[in-house]
């Protein structure tokens, strides 16, 4: 399968080719190829069970692919395992936040910078202050257990925790899931802000309308395959959603 055409200009940060991941005999990802460019938001859309989370887990090194390659910032990261992938600069914010409920907000953030603690203690402390500036609510709740935060606050914490590892690219898995519409708007405002600071983002979303508002490019995943991809400007949102969910 040929690599899909994307915009010219920005360089490829992440390029996935012919990636296949299985759970036993079931292929959850089947020959997936895609490209995410530097400084852009690349959006992965698709219905439940399309393989979006499997794709995220495979990129983050949690799952080992059966075949295919993942080039990130010039190195091959497929099958390297989570610690090395994180070290190379790719950081995942998992679905449902998955904060450490019994640890304080501060410890959650410090755990995000775990791999940098030994060598860059002072830098980590500075980054912590920066996160508190960006998310003042986390500063307020610094000593509180993360399990006592609201859903939106936990999502901010998960995002801040991922940023604490100073990634080159963020993988966001369903940041809006289970949140009230007003909070979803807040989260997307933060995503836009992080992007404007030059962060490259791969965003998985079920909320297609919201996602297409921030996306520079999107891929549609269906039953483990990329069924089509494009640029949100080229298509009306309604067309994308119609093609995607109704198969027209």
């Amino acid at each position: 399968m040929a690599l899909p055409q994307t915009q010219v200009g920005a360089t490829d940060m992440l390029s996935v080719s012919n990636l296949t991941t299985s759970y036993g005999l079931i292929k959850a990802l089947n020959d997936v190829s895609l490209v995410a460019k530097e400084g852009q938001v690349t959006c992965i859309l698709g219905p439940n069970g399309a393989g979006k989370t499997t794709l995220m887990f495979t990129l983050a090194g949690i799952l080992k692919p059966v075949s295919g390659s993942v080039q990130f910032d010039g190195i091959e990261i497929a099958g390297l395992g989570a610690p090395k992938v994180l070290q190379s600069g790719l950081s995942l914010v998992p679905e449902n936040r998955l904060v450490f409920p019994l640890m304080s907000v501060r410890d959650n953030l410090m755990a995000g910078a775990y791999l940098r603690h030994r060598s860059k203690r002072i830098e980590v402390e500075n980054d912590l202050e920066k996160m508190y500036e960006r998310f003042p609510v986390l500063k307020q709740r610094e000593e509180q257990n993360a399990g006592t935060l609201s859903g939106g606050e936990q999502q901010m914490l998960a995002l801040a925790r991922a940023l604490m590892s100073r990634p080159k690219m963020l993988l966001l898995d369903e940041p809006s899931v289970g949140l009230a519409p007003k909070i979803v708007d807040e989260i997307f405002a933060i995503i836009t802000q992080v992007k404007s600071e030059g962060m490259s983002i791969v965003l998985v979303e079920q909320n297609a309308i919201k996602a297409l508002q921030v996306a520079d490019h999107f891929y549609f995943l269906d039953q483990g395959r990329v069924s089509f991809n494009g640029n949100p400007n080229e298509l009306e949102n309604e067309d994308v959603i119609r093609r995607a969910y109704l198969g027209q």
Binding site: P83, V99, L102, D107, A111, R161
Partner: peptide, 23 residues
């Protein structure tokens, strides 16, 4: 300690600890 932080994180949520680079 850094390692203690990691131990507590693994006790709290092992899957996520793995995600943050825990061996």
């Amino acid at each position: 300690t850094r390692f203690g932080l990691l131990l507590r994180a693994s006790a709290d949520n092992p899957e996520t600890a793995k995600l943050l680079g825990a061996n």
